[in-house]
Nucleic acid binder design. Structure first.
Length: 615
RNA sequence: GCCCCAGUAGCUCAGCUGGUAGAGCGACGGCCUUGUAAGCCGUUGGUCAGGGGUUCAAAUCCCCUCUGGGGCUCCA
């Protein structure tokens, strides 16, 4: 907010004609107001004021009152005056803030507020003493801090054979024509703010068309409803996350509450570092916060845990919903939500040396995990300069595991709680990136939240904490659908990975005479933990095939006289064609393809005619 | 959160220089008994996102709200 304060004998003004589309309503155009012995505050509301109107009003009130006392003015005239800044707030908000300012001042002194949004004529007699003219700029305190903190990062590409290619994000020539992984180039373009397609991500239409997931307007922005088929995919991914953490990494699974009291110091501390992106609620006069990450409950639990150096590294896993009040304009489809399901694995290590061993192990596991998901992705590291210089060869050894070059962001100094992190980023159908798995090396939080282990000498020591996640389940669904959309664009038949296809096999009886046999076959397939159903609707075979194809069903079996008499099924494989197979061969093929991926049972009526349509 | 664009039947959309709505698909009913991407006939279907305003008259013009999309901003 900009203020120009004038101590005046009098001011006289009258609104003449509207200056904006929606000016404040006034009673008499052209009617003069006169105020004597006053401090006139010419006042410009700036864009930045919209972020924290309360604070701005408070600071402005203080500044005006301070000056009123100094010059001993009897009253204040707040005079909207757009011309003190070139970065204006929206008129709607400016009016709100000005009225708020009037309200606050009124508690202390007589105030007049000139109408907003009018061209006004005015006469002003300035007293002319040394303190009679003064200008002030009011800026939110937080904003000031932010500006001071900002030191730019530098960027480079690091290859598995240890080559460093410095790049400059503000100069696309330094990276656009490099002969290197095209997916990484796309990631860097995103990082540099170069966007190729300005359109809605394709997964939104697909998730509705396939009856997986949809918006729920009765909820808040970024909260979705999951239909039965969407639930199959979500459950399968969750089970995959469980298997990864529990079977693969031998982590201990826990669960912690979703709601926390804000007056607990450590909770308040974590909340304050997350700005205003949290959901708050008041119950029984107590203020609560909805968890925006798993750390709340986990850190409390680990603070109380007694850990010996002999037990480390200790891995803890939690899968649970988190809530973040992301800016409404940022919530798009499944890319960014306000409610999401997050698998979290935290590893508690003795020291940096053990932390690095653990990091490398997790890097290998997460890379293997991401590779198995049939998507296009690139890796980005963020690392504090000092750490990078000491450990460059170690990072190269990670890249050798992934066999991919990576973007490296080098932070001149420690800015967050971690000294090293990396992300797996998928590229969507519009060329935008979607962050998936991430791994962070945290050297600060153990001390901050009192998480200790007891060392060889019986002394308490702070842990090194590795935070890691495969990324939210919802995002993974989005990315898998985006991958299908990209295939479609490249004239490939769009598919879901077999293990995630809600219906894996559809049996189509040629007519009602073969319905019983069809159901018998479907049940047999289901017994093998493969999801099969039967299209028993009274439609032509052609129609049923068409519907199965538009549902992206990977295996379609047509059942008629021929099949029943020979025992050879006619199997239409999505994107490939029709082959002849015995039932056992079909089951074997699917089992082989799904391999160790999770098997979620069919949670729908086996007969299509028994299902409602959710579209 | 800000700026811009959009919202018409369950779905996809037409109508939008003002005269209170239409198609295809779906659903429902019937006929057909089906062999690898839509068999035929009929019926049903709407507070034109919600609210307010202008007007004799609003889906159509104006304002507000909600929801979605694009672009910013933000993402310890």
């Amino acid at each position: 907010m900009r203020l120009l304060l004038i101590h005046a004998d009098y001011i006289e003004y009258a609104p003449l004609q509207p200056a904006i589309k929606e000016p404040e309503k006034i009673e008499n155009i052209g009617k003069y107001e006169r105020v004597d012995e006053c401090l006139v505050a010419f006042c410009t509301i700036e864009k930045i004021d919209e972020e924290n109107p309360e604070e701005i009003v408070k600071l402005a009130t203080e500044a005006i009152i301070e000056h009123v006392k100094m010059v001993k003015a009897n009253r204040v005239v707040v005079y909207p005056y757009a011309h003190l800044s070139s970065d204006l707030a929206s008129p709607k908000n400016a009016i709100k803030i000005l009225h708020k300012l009037k309200e606050e001042l009124e508690k202390i002194i007589e105030v007049k507020l000139a109408p907003f949004g009018w061209y006004k004529t005015f006469t002003l007699k300035c007293k002319g003493h040394p303190l009679s003219e003064l200008s002030r700029t009011i800026v939110p305190k937080e904003e000031k801090k932010k500006e001071e903190k900002h030191i730019p990062s530098s960027f480079l590409i690091l290859t598995p054979d240890g080559k460093e290619i410095p790049i400059d994000l503000s100069n696309p020539n330094t990276f656009l024509n490099l002969d290197i992984d095209p997916t990484l180039i796309k990631l860097i373009k995103n990082e540099a703010g170069i966007k190729e397609k300005h359109q809605a991500p394709a997964h939104i239409k697909i998730m509705k068309k396939l009856e997986l997931i949809d918006y729920e307007p009765a909820s808040d922005v970024g909260h979705f409803r999951f239909y039965p088929k969407g639930m199959i995919i979500k459950t399968a991914l969750e089970e995959f996350a469980n298997n990864f953490a529990i079977k693969e990494l031998k982590a201990m699974r826990i669960e912690t509450p979703m709601i926390y009291k804000l007056d607990e110091p450590d909770i308040a501390e974590q909340a304050s570092r997350f700005k205003e992106k949290d959901y708050r609620l008041k119950v029984d006069n107590k203020e609560f916060i909805l968890r925006f990450a798993g750390d709340f409950g986990l850190f409390r639990m680990m603070k109380d845990a007694i850990m010996s150096y002999k037990q480390l590294p200790i891995r803890v896993y939690e899968l649970s919903p988190s809530f973040r009040l992301e800016q409404s304009g940022e919530c798009v489809g499944l890319k960014r939500l306000r409610a999401f399901t997050m698998p979290d694995i935290h590893c508690f290590c003795k020291n940096l040396e053990e932390g690095l061993l653990e990091y490398k192990l997790l890097f290998e596991k997460y890379t293997e995990f991401t590779n198995s998901m049939e998507i296009e992705y690139a890796i980005a590291f963020r690392v504090v300069k000092e750490f990078y210089l000491k450990n460059k060869e170690w990072i190269v050894s990670l890249l050798k595991i992934a066999n991919k070059p990576a973007l490296i962001e080098i932070l001149p100094e420690m800015k967050h709680y971690w000294i090293l992190k990396h992300e797996y980023q998928a590229i969507d159908s519009t060329g935008g990136n979607i962050q998936l798995a991430t791994l962070q090396l945290d050297v600060e939080d153990a001390a901050r939240y009192g998480i200790y282990y007891v060392d060889e000498n019986g002394e308490k020591k702070g842990c090194i904490i590795l935070h890691s996640s495969m990324g939210s389940i919802e995002r993974w669904i989005g990315v898998i659908l985006e991958q299908a959309a990209k295939d479609m664009e490249n004239n490939k038949v769009p598919k879901l990975p077999l293990w995630l296809s809600p219906i894996q096999v559809r049996i189509i009886p040629v007519n009602m005479n073969y319905l019983d046999k069809a159901i018998e076959i479907a049940l047999k397939i289901n017994e093998n933990n493969i999801r099969a159903d039967v299209d028993d609707r009274n439609e032509s075979v052609a129609k049923k095939i068409r519907d199965a194809e538009t549902e992206w069903i990977p295996y379609i079996v047509v059942l008629g006289e021929k099949e029943v008499s020979t025992g050879e099924l006619s199997v239409r494989i999505r994107g490939e064609g029709i082959v002849s197979k015995k039932l056992e061969e079909l089951i074997e093929e699917i089992n082989k393809k799904i391999s160790s991926k999770p098997r979620v049972p069919l949670c729908l009526p086996i007969r299509l005619s028994a299902r409602p349509s959710f579209k």
